[in-house]
C-alpha cells in the first residue's frame, strides 16, 4: 500500500516534469505548422486547422538554412573534438603529475568560469581579429574550444582521480610507456567523463550566439543561431519559419544525446582492484 502511494507520487512528479519540459516544444511545433495567415492566433490546439509544412519548405528555399546547419555542425564537431582532446590530456597532467603552479592553475581555471560570458566578448573579438580569423570557422572553433576547456578539464581531472594509479603502473611494468598507458588504459576507462565533456562542448557550441554574433559577418557563414535570429527582424518576424527552424535544430542534439547515453554508464572501474 505504502509503496503504491510512493510510486503514484513518483510517477506524478515524472509526468509533470515531462509536461513542463515538452510543452514549449509542442507549442513551437504547432506554430511551425500553422498556415501563414494564422501565425498570431491565440488558438491553443496542437494541430491547427489547415496544418501545413509550408514554413519548412520556405525555410529551405528562401534562406541559407542548410548552409547554417552545415556551418554549425562543422564548428560544433570541431570544437567538441579539439576541446575534449585538449582537456583530456591537460586534465591528465593535473591529475597525475606534480608541477609548480598546479594548484594555482586549477584555481585559475575555475576562476575563468566565474566571469560572465558577456564580459569575454570584447577580448575574444580582439584576439580573433589579431589572429586574422574574423569570419572564419577556425576563429569560431578556437573561441569555443578555449572557453569550454576549463569546465572539461575539471570534469576529467575529477574522474581520473578516481582511477587507481596502479592501473597505469601495471601497464608500464607490462611494457607501455606513459603515453600508451594513457590511451590504452586511462582513456577507455574514462568514457563516461569523456562523453560528458563532449556533450558539454557540443551543446555549448551548438547553441552559442554572442560570440558568433561578433565573429561572423557574412550570412553565408552564419551558424543557425545567427540565421534564425536573422528571420526576426527587418520588417516582419517570420514566426512560422523561425519555429520550423527551432524544431529542426533540436534533431542533431537529440541524436547526440541518444547515442552518447550508452557511454555515460559509469562504474567501469569496478572490479579492477580489491575483492
Amino acid at each position: 500500500m505504502k509503496t503504491k502511494v510512493k510510486y503514484f507520487f513518483i510517477h506524478l512528479f515524472i509526468v509533470m516534469a515531462v509536461i513542463i519540459t515538452t510543452y514549449p516544444l509542442l507549442r513551437i511545433f504547432s506554430v511551425s505548422i500553422r498556415p501563414g495567415d494564422r501565425i498570431i492566433s491565440t488558438d491553443l490546439s496542437l494541430i491547427p486547422d489547415g496544418a501545413t509544412f509550408i514554413s519548412y519548405i520556405k525555410l529551405f528555399k528562401e534562406t541559407f538554412f542548410i548552409k547554417w546547419i552545415f556551418n554549425s555542425l562543422l564548428i560544433t564537431f570541431a570544437t567538441s573534438f579539439i576541446g575534449v582532446t585538449l582537456a583530456s590530456t591537460a586534465a591528465y597532467a593535473f591529475s597525475r603529475y606534480n608541477f609548480t603552479g598546479k594548484k594555482w592553475g586549477l584555481s585559475a581555471l575555475l576562476l575563468t568560469q566565474m566571469i560572465p560570458a558577456g564580459m569575454l566578448i570584447l577580448p575574444l573579438y580582439l584576439m580573433i581579429m589579431k589572429l586574422n580569423l574574423i569570419n572564419t570557422y577556425l576563429g569560431m572553433v578556437i573561441a569555443y574550444s578555449v572557453s569550454s576547456l576549463p569546465f572539461s578539464i575539471w570534469i576529467l581531472k575529477g574522474y581520473y582521480d578516481t582511477i587507481p594509479k596502479s592501473l597505469e603502473e601495471a601497464a608500464m611494468v607490462d611494457g607501455a610507456n606513459e603515453i600508451t598507458a594513457f590511451y590504452k588504459v586511462i582513456l577507455p576507462l574514462s568514457t563516461p567523463a569523456l562523453s560528458i565533456a563532449f556533450l558539454f562542448n557540443f551543446t555549448m557550441a551548438w547553441n552559442e550566439y554572442l560570440v558568433a554574433r561578433v565573429v561572423l559577418y557574412h550570412p553565408q557563414n552564419y551558424t543557425w543561431t545567427l540565421g534564425l535570429f536573422e528571420l526576426q527582424g527587418q520588417f516582419i518576424t517570420q514566426w512560422g519559419m523561425f519555429a520550423a527552424g527551432s524544431i529542426l535544430i533540436t534533431i542533431p542534439v537529440l541524436l547526440i544525446f541518444l547515442y552518447s547515453s550508452k557511454w555515460l554508464i559509469s562504474g567501469l572501474t569496478l572490479g579492477s582492484v580489491k575483492g
Binding site: 587507481p164 596502479s166 592501473l167 603502473e169 601495471a170 601497464a171 608500464m172 611494468v173 607490462d174 611494457g175 607501455a176 610507456n177 588504459v185 577507455p188 576507462l189 567501469l268 572501474t269 569496478l270 572490479g271 579492477s272 582492484v273 580489491k274
Partner: peptide, 18 residues
C-alpha cells in the same frame, strides 16, 4: 619500468577493468 623486463603482481591486482 617498461625496459626492465620484470613482472609485478600488485597488492590490489590492478587488472585492466575494460
Amino acid at each position: 619500468p617498461s625496459k626492465r623486463e620484470i613482472a609485478m603482481v600488485f597488492q590490489d591486482y590492478a587488472l585492466y577493468p575494460h
